[in-house]
Write a protein that binds this DNA or RNA. Sequence first.
RNA 1: GGCUCGUUGGUCAAGCGGUUAAGACGCCGCCCUCUCACGGCGGAAACAGGAGUUCGAUUCUCCUACGAGCUGCCA
Length: 486
Amino acid sequence: MTKIRTRYAPSPTGKMHVGNLRSALYEFLIAKHEGGDFMLRIEDTDQERFVEGATEIIYRTLEKTGLVHDEGPDKDGGYGPYVQSERMKTGIYMKYAKELIDKGEAYYCFCDKERLATLKTEIVEGKEITVYDKHCLSLSKEEIEANLAAGKPFVIRQNNPTEGTTTFHDELYGDITVENSELDDMILIKSDGYPTYNFANVVDDHTMNITHVVRGNEYLSSSPKYVRLYEAFGWQVPVYVHLPLITDENHKKLSKRSGHSSFEDLLEQGFVTEAIVNYIALLGWSPEDNREIFSLQELIEKFDYHRISKSPAVFDIVKLRWMNGEYLKAMDFDAFYEMAEPYLKAALTRDLDLKKIAAMVKTRIEVFPDIADQVDFFEKLPEYDTAMYTHKKMKTTAVSSLEVLTEILPVLEAQEDYSNDALYQTLLTYVEQKGCKNGYVMWPIRTALSGKQMTPAGATEIMEVLGKEESLKRIRKGIELLSAAL
RNA sequence: GGCUCGUUGGUCAAGCGGUUAAGACGCCGCCCUCUCACGGCGGAAACAGGAGUUCGAUUCUCCUACGAGCUGCCA
């Protein structure tokens, strides 16, 4: 069996969106699962849409996600160049286009915009539907020569038959057959000399020995035209794997405007790379068992592309958040701290034990920005309503809380050891004396310390972090507020 | 409009002629607990509709509906 070669062929037009990333991931996995090669090819044949820096984003993203390419512009594997604009300079596309012309499978077209405009047949949903009428196919050799000699702008179009059908096979979708009359004579070479995606893609995939063409579903309906190109050249048609679309919650194709769907945006929102990769791997593919958490290495082992689904998948940020939380919980503490520290520092300016706080928060957040809301009370006691002291389950009321706080204050004032363990012992002793439930005592103290309904830690842990002075200050404040309210 | 593809709970999905139709996220309830979270247990929630084929269809075929993609000198 020949070695599998797949490719990720993005056009450098901006950020890498989740759909792009998933294509790259699947292309990588399909190759690596079989010990094949994965390559990167930059498709920059549209100079107008080229965005400065976009190529760098592609490199950075592939590197960060671990989708290491075996060949690419920066890693010559003998099939270069790997950038289409550079390939064009070698004359490769024009050479093959001419070969097609010689075979009668393509032809020069000198039609200008004005003539094309007369072809407009109908307008559907604001878009003009034009079908080229093969006008230039009937040009004589002499006319063509004359036009060329006169320097008249031209394009080269594919010459598709008007009768019969074309069938191609997709690994996921099976055989797809279309009437040749539906195939319009698409442009192969643009008037600026650049090849269109349609042509460059076929030429490059063939000349770079790509065995499995893996790409988005949006190419499914134009694939018959590509297959005709392969056949016209007499080249072996590659294995096709068309991937289902990823949509937003409204089932619309993920768009830049719907926001936050690019890989970089997700990182900014506090997601970790591994979780993002893991999540998108499951968007359109599932393993044989029920497992959901996979490292890249494990994905390589398990990824059988025949299990890719055919229907589109909705990108669910809520589930991604859950998965990210799973990754944070499983993360080694030092690694977690390193990533959490900037968020901690942004939220806390006092001198507090950030590591202790990080540990508290680790199992309680899904993404890093969640930290702010969790720890804000350490920084500053918020304004709070004394109604919070009344808690049904804890059987506490404003009156009972005032009593507890008043009784415990001198004890805490006398206490020297403000470690969690020591404080906890002290409070338990008090609970025993009183003969009440833990919560009856803990709730009012925690409330006074935090001013919040919920905190990432219990009363004694909070005191440990806050320290004696601040803890007492907050408890006195609680007594003051309760007294005033009663 | 034409062509192509798709359609299992709100979402991701398993299923590939016979099942009480998995599992996960989310949601709800209970337990655990120094509040919340974590963790544990449980619950509500689905085969788009209609014809066939078959002893039997979620699984196969056709039609309809809905959705999406393409219909660019964009990829």
